[in-house]
C-alpha cells in the first residue's frame, strides 16, 4: 500500500458516498445512468470472486465487500424508491458494444486462461469503459447537477491516482501489471473532457454546462 493508492481508494469510496448522498437528499437519481451503475456491479462481482479463495488483507476484504454492497444498493435504489425519477429514454448507450469487445479482449489478454483470470481481465477492461453510458447521458442532456459532477470528479481522481501508484510500485517493488495499466490509462483518458469543464466551470462556481 502506498499513499497514491490509498488516496485513490478513498476517492473511489467518497464518489460512491456522494452518489448515495445525492440520491437521498434530492430524492432522485436524475442524471445518473442506470447502465453505468449496472456495469459497475458486473465489474465488482467478476473481479472480487477472489474473496472466496484469496486473502489479501483486512482492508482489501472490507473494501471489496463495500464496493459490491454499495453498487448493488445503488441499483436497488434506482429500481425501487427512485425509479420514477429515472429516465431510460436518455440512457440509451448500447452496452452490448462494451460487453462484447471486453469479453473478446479478456479471452485474448489475461494472465492465465482460467475462468477466474478471464473474469478478472474482463472486469478490468469493463471498468475502463463502464463510465461511457454516464458520459453519453451527460453529453445528451448537456448539463448536470453540481453534486453529480462531484461524483464524476471523485471517480476521475480515483483513476488518476492509480497512475502514480503504478509508477511508484514499479520503482519500489518492481511490480508491473500491463493489463491494469493499459486499461487504467484508457479509463483515465475518458475523463479528460469532463475534467476540463469541471475545472473551468464547476470549480469556479458555475453550473456544469457543455458548450453548445
Amino acid at each position: 500500500m502506498n499513499l497514491f493508492r490509498f488516496l485513490g481508494d478513498t476517492a473511489h469510496l467518497a464518489s460512491i458516498l456522494v452518489l448515495i448522498h445525492k440520491m437521498h437528499t434530492t430524492k432522485s437519481c436524475r442524471g445518473i445512468s442506470f447502465k453505468t451503475q449496472a456495469l459497475y456491479v458486473a465489474v465488482f462481482v467478476t473481479r472480487y470472486l477472489d474473496l472466496f479463495y484469496r486473502w489479501v488483507s483486512l482492508y482489501n476484504f472490507f473494501m471489496k465487500l463495500f464496493f459490491i454492497g454499495s453498487s448493488c444498493y445503488i441499483l436497488f435504489l434506482m429500481k425501487t424508491k427512485f425509479r420514477p425519477t429515472q429516465d431510460p429514454a436518455i440512457d440509451t448507450f448500447r452496452i452490448e458494444y462494451l460487453l462484447g469487445p471486453c469479453t473478446v479482449i479478456a479471452l485474448i489478454f489475461n494472465y492465465k486462461f482460467s475462468p477466474t483470470e478471464i473474469l478478472w481481465s474482463f472486469s478490468i477492461f469493463l471498468e475502463s469503459v463502464a463510465i461511457l453510458p454516464q458520459l453519453f447521458l451527460l453529453q445528451r442532456t448537456g448539463e448536470a447537477e453540481t453534486i453529480t459532477t462531484h461524483y464524476l470528479a471523485a471517480l476521475g481522481i480515483y483513476r488518476a491516482l492509480y497512475i502514480p501508484n503504478w509508477i511508484y510500485r514499479y520503482f519500489t517493488e518492481g511490480v508491473v501489471d500491463p493489463i491494469a495499466i493499459t486499461a487504467g490509462l484508457v479509463q483515465t483518458g475518458l475523463y479528460i473532457d469532463f475534467f476540463y469543464v469541471y475545472v473551468t466551470k464547476v470549480l469556479q462556481g458555475q453550473k456544469f454546462e457543455l458548450p453548445a
Partner: peptide
C-alpha cells in the same frame, strides 16, 4: 511480468 503481478489492488 504476469507472475510479478500481486492482485492486491482494488
Amino acid at each position: 511480468a504476469a507472475d510479478r503481478h500481486t492482485k492486491d489492488e482494488l
